[in-house]
Structure formats: structure tokens, C-alpha cells
Design a binder for these strands. Structure first.
Lengths: 224, 224
DNA sequence: ATGATAATCGAACACCTGTTCGGTGTCAAG
DNA sequence: CTTGACACCGAACAGGTGTTCGATTATCAT
């Protein structure tokens, strides 16, 4: 008769090991040794680490180069080296609010994510709680953003003039990407494309800034 | 009196070691051991490998975690793991031709380059001779591409309908980014933004396809 | 030639590291 | 109670691996 797993999937110990490997790899640029894993995870015997490692390998979470030193690595596309893994929280669609997960609700394995080389990111944004949205519909085309594009945002509540922000206009029931300007009697939401006219918002209208765009990525492979 | 270095900078052996480390790291996801380096570079003694490693460390090319196994790593922003380093060949400016370096003229250290995570690239394009251009001027704005954007291209001579391509119109003396369509009496160059009208090119007019756009990247940090 | 410096080698050494194996304790099923 | 699966420990072992050192050969200015 099969035993029922105490907790679905991995145990607490497994996660610690997994986290440690990722952390160590990022810091040292090379994998940890079995003993280093043990120390960090309060496992006093190398054989127990090996025990866990074998399980994690069986469950497909890691790969091992047997017999050779430090031959552990996480499976799949690991944000090795100098890249940021940015979770894709959803789609940005006119007519629907963006759901920004509360603070650090970071799923262990986000449904989807994008990896961006550190070298591409503006220095200031590194390590922030960046998140990404996939643009659906052509409602944002006046901001030089098209269907299918991925926009990377930094969560902010306030914006300075000239910044491209994701804005939720609750009374119009609309989310949009625009350049943001404060003016005497309200806000001006300026499309990036000069052929479009700006949207003027009176101070009385509610306006909620969701995030500031720091990067836009368009993959042009759907026209193959 | 100082000795004059035979060849400027690094010797042939040094480069082989450097290349091997990068290659090995990419393949195995962990650094090589001293003996593995030796084998691959026709160095029969571990002490000689150590000798070279010390020099490379002194010259700043690598870092070493002394005493620990496989503690070598390349310095600086190494295209570690799963990223592609794509050279930026120049700027794309309307009114000037793009210079595409002949075949595999790949400088050891391109003036500039962008690192893109493999996971972001369309599977087909991986490992191709991709190159990147920085867009200058707003001449391409009708293709949803703006000043400062980086477009990543695959070099092609011919395009299929619907592909976004970089085109050189020699009689108009103009380079442009457009969606490409063959039609009965010529070509139609369709801007991505539907609010702009297509450019129609007769078969008599010369048209030279430089490359096909596979990705567009926009860093939005200059508005800080 | 000659002495100095660089490039190599090979072997010995000591620690690093993964593997293996015999035990201990717990807990639930038989 | 016994059994067996599970999680865990500690020690011992066999290679893996970086380090060190004495010795040899090449190169080159003097």
C-alpha cells in the first residue's frame, strides 16, 4: 500500500536544499559540495545530504554529475550567473484591472517568467521587486507597445513627469500604458506616438499608478 | 629592464585555457578541474595549468576560489549558462546604409553587445549569427520601434510575407523597418501601426533585405 | 658562452568530496 | 510485539583535486 506523502510534493528540508543550491550558485558561480549543503541545512551527515539529493534527482528537480566534485545543478532553465528572473504576473488588458500580488507573495515556481541579463537592466532597478506583464489587445499601441509584448515594471505608487507608467483609471474601467505628466489642473497621459493626442485627467477623477515601465520586450517570431 | 611581451596581451595557450573554461562552463554548468583543463589544452602537468591560471588571475581574466574544487570562473560579465551574447554592429539610421560585417568577422570583444537569455529566444534562432542594431532617429516609429531601441536581427536575403525586416532602398537612400509583403506588381512595406499607410514598391525599384527582426528591446531608463 | 627568466614537467602530498555501509530511532501496519 | 519503511547519523574509504617543489629545457639579452 502506498504511503501518503505528508506534504504534497517536497518536504521542508528539500526546499531548503534547493534554495541553498540556487543561492550558492548565484553567489559563488559554482555549485556547492555535499558537505556545504549539509552545513547550511543543518544536516550533519553527508550521507543524508546524498539521500536528499538522490530524491531530488529522482523527482527531476536537480541533475547530478556523479563522481565529480560539485556536480549538482538545478534542472531546467536556472537563472544562472548574471540574470534576473522576473515573474510574469499576468496580462495587461484594457477593461480589466491588473492584479498585483500582495508584497512578497512569490510562488516557488511562477507560472511563467522572463530571464533578463543583468547587463541589460538599468543599474538602479537590479534586485528590485520587478514584475512583468504580457500585453493583450492593441489598447496600448499608442505607447509603442503591441499585442504580445512583455513589459517589465517596477512597482511604484507615484510617478515623476515623463515616466512611462501602467495606470488604472477606475471610473473609466481601463488600464493603460502612458507617459505621465502632472499639470496644473490634473494629469496628462501622453502617448508615446506623437500622432496620438494626450488624455487629460482631472484631479477629481481617480487615478491609480500600478508601476513604472523599465523595459519592453517584443519577440517577433509569431510571424514565421 | 622589462621584457617585451612576444604577442600583445595573452599567449596562444592562455586563450585556449580561457576558451576552454567558458566552453566547459556552458556545457557542464560547473567549472572544470585543473586536470580537465590540462587534458583539453595539451598541458601534461597540473602545475603548468596552475601556472597559467595564476597568470590569468593576475591579469584579471579569471577569479579563483583557492583550495576548493573547480573554483575557477571567468571575470566580469560572462555569458554564463544559458544566454546568448549578441554583438551590436551599429546603428540603423534612415538615410544611411547598414554596414553588415562580412560573414564571420566577429571581433573577440565587440565594442558593445547585448546578452539575451536563451529562454527568451525563439528556438529556431538560437546559435545563429544574430546581430543587433540600435535605432537612431524616429524614422522607424511606424514599426513600433523608437529611438534608442535595440533590434535583434537574423541575417537573411529573402523574406516571407509578414516578416518584419530591415530594408535598404538604395534609390530612396533609406533604411527602414517594415513588415514585408510580396504583391502582384511589387512589394508592400506595411508599418506595424495600422494608423500609417503602407509603402508600395514597384518591382523596378531596387530593394535589399538586410535582416529579419526577431526581437525588439526597449530600455526605458532615460526618462528617469 | 653564460646567466637570468620563462615555460614545462613529474611526482609527492594533503585535503576535498562523493560513496558506501552498518546503525539508531520513529511510526504505523500487521 | 514484530516488521518494515523512513529519516537520519557517523565513520571509513577511494578517488578527485589543488598545491608545492625540485628539476629540466628553451629563450634571450649580455
Amino acid at each position: 500500500m502506498m504511503m501518503v506523502r505528508k506534504s504534497k510534493g517536497l518536504g521542508e528540508r528539500h526546499k531548503r536544499v534547493l534554495d541553498f543550491i540556487e543561492d550558492y550558485q548565484r553567489k559563488h558561480k559554482h555549485p556547492p559540495s555535499i558537505r556545504e549543503i549539509g552545513e547550511s541545512c543543518d544536516i550533519s551527515s553527508t550521507s543524508v545530504v546524498n539521500y536528499y539529493l538522490n530524491q531530488l534527482e529522482k523527482s527531476g528537480h536537480i541533475e547530478r554529475d556523479r563522481k565529480i566534485s560539485r556536480g549538482v545543478r538545478l534542472t531546467g532553465s536556472t537563472p544562472l550567473g548574471d540574470m534576473l528572473r522576473i515573474p510574469i504576473y499576468g496580462r495587461i488588458v484594457a477593461g480589466e484591472p491588473i492584479l498585483i500580488p500582495s508584497s512578497d507573495f512569490r510562488a516557488f515556481t511562477p507560472d511563467e517568467s522572463v530571464d533578463i541579463a543583468m547587463s541589460l537592466m538599468p543599474a538602479k532597478e537590479k534586485g528590485k521587486d520587478l514584475f512583468a506583464l504580457e500585453v493583450q489587445g492593441e489598447s496600448m499601441i499608442d505607447a509603442l507597445v503591441n499585442e504580445g509584448d512583455i513589459v517589465i515594471l517596477k512597482p511604484v505608487q507615484d510617478a515623476r513627469n515623463g515616466e512611462m507608467v501602467a495606470i488604472w483609471l477606475s471610473d473609466r474601467n481601463e488600464t493603460t500604458l502612458k507617459y505621465f505628466y502632472k499639470e496644473k489642473d490634473g494629469y496628462r497621459l501622453q502617448p508615446a506616438n506623437p500622432n496620438f493626442k494626450p488624455i487629460l485627467i482631472r484631479k477629481t477623477e481617480p487615478l491609480e499608478i500600478k508601476g513604472k515601465v523599465v523595459m519592453v520586450i517584443r519577440k517577433v517570431d509569431r510571424y514565421m
